[in-house]
Simulated scan of single mutants.
Amino acid sequence: MNIRKLIFLAVAALTLSPFITAPLALLLGLVLAQTMEHPYPQSSQKATHLLLKISVIGLGFGMNIYSAITAGKEGLLFTLASILIVLATGYFVGRKLKIDFKTTSLISAGTAICGGSAIAALSPVMKANQQQISVALGTVFILNSAALFLFPAVGHWLNLSQNQFGLWCAISIHDTSSVVGAASKYGEQALHVATTVKLSRALWIIPVSFGATYLFKTNKTKVQAPYFIALFVLAVLANTYFPFLTGYSHYLVSLAKSGLSLTLFLIGSGLSFKTLKGVGSKPLVLGTTLWALISVFSLYAIMVVL
């Protein structure tokens, strides 16, 4: 085993420590990405998707179904409005910037719904090529990384409540990993609200995928549903209705948070300068415009309504 692999594995193991927060784990990954070549690029991508799903399911053991339903209802209108606004704005801004329609659609859906998961689900439906997928993923991952550091700072600056901040994270941050990472830094209630609303938002992958099937005339392509959300709901139900789990839920949630930190480290380790350069300026302008729009719009609405 060479020195690169040893360093990578050692830092990855370090992120499992309870002393390493989600933003710090991401930062460690970003530092490694700029200082050495990734020793496990393919394995890291596969592990990221699996770890995120397992971690989200684990967080369900720290939640109550009644508070989850309340949070989901509260975020429904905000979610629907934000998705429609982002998809419509993305179409017009993409045309103005002369970005190809598939790349525009992937970036818009990634911003509107749930980042990399939406891009992964929609790309086979619209038959996007590898370049289009890479540009879209690179764009949302760059902005995700920024959000993980910026959102808690803005939340404290504006003195947002736990409920307000959790809802804002769920609507405005792309990927579930960064949503949970930012919310967990803010507080437990913010984490519960953010996770619940974000996962209900992720379910919009299904109708949007069917719409893309019609739009891109690919009716033979199978739509990928986010089945792990059902397991998250089962975990929440189990924690609510099976009292004997209460003594173990703390450990399961702690393991889930450690898994999330490792997930963010793996995401950061894949964002090298080469990756950033490959995104290009126009897609980044599109992604940043949409992200800024939904962040400001949702923050204003949440502060007025809640």
Score class of each variant (00 low, 15 high):
G62N: 10
G62R: 08
G62E: 07
G62C: 08
G62V: 04
M63D: 07
M63V: 04
M63F: 12
M63W: 09
M63C: 07
N64K: 02
N64Y: 08
N64G: 05
N64D: 09
I65S: 12
I65V: 09
I65T: 06
Y66K: 02
S67F: 07
A68R: 03
A68P: 01
A68W: 01
A68D: 00
A68L: 03
A68M: 04
I69W: 05
I69R: 03
I69S: 07
I69T: 04
I69A: 09
I69N: 05
I69V: 04
I69H: 00
T70I: 00
T70P: 00
T70M: 02
A71T: 03
A71V: 03
A71W: 04
A71P: 06
G72S: 08
G72F: 03
K73P: 02
K73W: 00
K73V: 02
E74R: 03
E74S: 06
E74M: 03
E74A: 03
E74F: 05
E74K: 04
G75E: 06
G75L: 04
G75T: 06
L76K: 07
L76I: 05
L76E: 07
L77T: 11
L77G: 09
L77E: 11
L77C: 10
F78P: 13
F78G: 05
T79V: 10
T79H: 00
T79C: 13
T79E: 13
T79N: 15
L80E: 14
A81V: 09
A81L: 11
A81I: 08
A81W: 11
A81P: 00
A81T: 10
S82H: 12
S82I: 12
S82Q: 14
S82A: 15
I83Q: 04
I83F: 00
I83G: 03
I83L: 09
I83Y: 14
L84H: 09
L84S: 15
L84M: 14
L84C: 14
L84R: 12
L84E: 11
L84D: 13
I85M: 13
I85G: 14
V86A: 15
V86Y: 01
V86W: 03
V86I: 14
L87F: 13
L87Y: 12
L87T: 13
L87W: 11
L87G: 15
A88V: 12
A88G: 15
A88I: 10
A88R: 09
A88Y: 15
T89I: 04
T89D: 07
G90Q: 10
Y91R: 13
Y91C: 09
Y91N: 13
F92V: 08
F92E: 12
F92R: 09
F92C: 11
F92H: 12
V93A: 10
V93L: 10
V93R: 10
G94K: 06
